[in-house]
Amino acid sequence: MTYPDVVQYAVPLFVVLVLAELIYIRLTGEGGRYETRDALTSLVMGAGNVISGILFAGVTLGFFFWLWQFRFFDLGHAWYVVVIAFILDDLRYYWVHRLGHRVRWVWASHVNHHSSQHYNLTTALRQTWTGIFTFMIVLSAPMILLGFHPYMILFVGGLNLVYQFWIHTEAIVKLPRWFEAVMNTPSHHRVHHGRNARYLDANYAGVFIIWDKWFGTYVPELEADAPDYGLVHNLGTFNPIRIAFHEWVAIARDMMKPGLSWRQRLNYALKPPGWSHDNSRNPSEVIKAKYVEMNPDVRGTPGFEGY
């Protein structure tokens, strides 16, 4: 049984939709912002992600097929198995993504996706080059051991990525209530890309927003608090190579600081972004707490529950 590489087939669609969004914004003066160098950076990073995927395909496939020999079942290739695989893979994605924001080692790979101060369809393509080094492919192991074929897992993972493309837009404000309740939408994902204190560490969903609702990470987009896109401290470059590797470099520099214990060195890689051995930096919890201290009226509102 073979499955198509949906991401590669979607490339022409990506180009057409980006052009459509660009022209829509120019004609209407609303629905988002574009900037030439920002868009170029995002697109080059997208191309780099495809190249990285091809270069490391052997590692991924090798790992998947090595695991496949230890499977408990063989669930076959019926359509409903593919549907179940798609849903379970989205649950896997939720946790990989959540770890991507809560473990600096994984964040080092994912941070580049958040490095644009824009939020448009090119931002969707600003993808990592270093995903393989996070070792997050181990989170696919349960599905393979359960008997979902490796090629099926790659296929549904591709579908997941293609779904997430169109939600990176400000051109769509809100969708019907039933859709917003179940699916990840532009509104939900704008929250995820927001650097506002309220929106930090929220809405990790890929396709189904229900995971965030179940696991307590859902925050709705509020009209009174429009998302401000980018990183807590934005990057001073459009150079894709610097963007792709900057957090890895920062981890290395932190781990090699003189006078640290081995536990502190390890913590610089494994604790959440913003952790520091001397509390000189602010992780997201501290950013939220300080924001609530400065703006007490937001206490208990979405994104600030428990502060």
Partner: peptide, 17 residues
């Protein structure tokens, strides 16, 4: 991919962004 990137970047620039 190269053609797509070129087209988008050129249009973004020409549209005044």
């Amino acid at each position: 991919v190269v053609l797509g990137i070129g087209l988008i970047v050129l249009l973004t620039h020409l549209l005044g962004f």
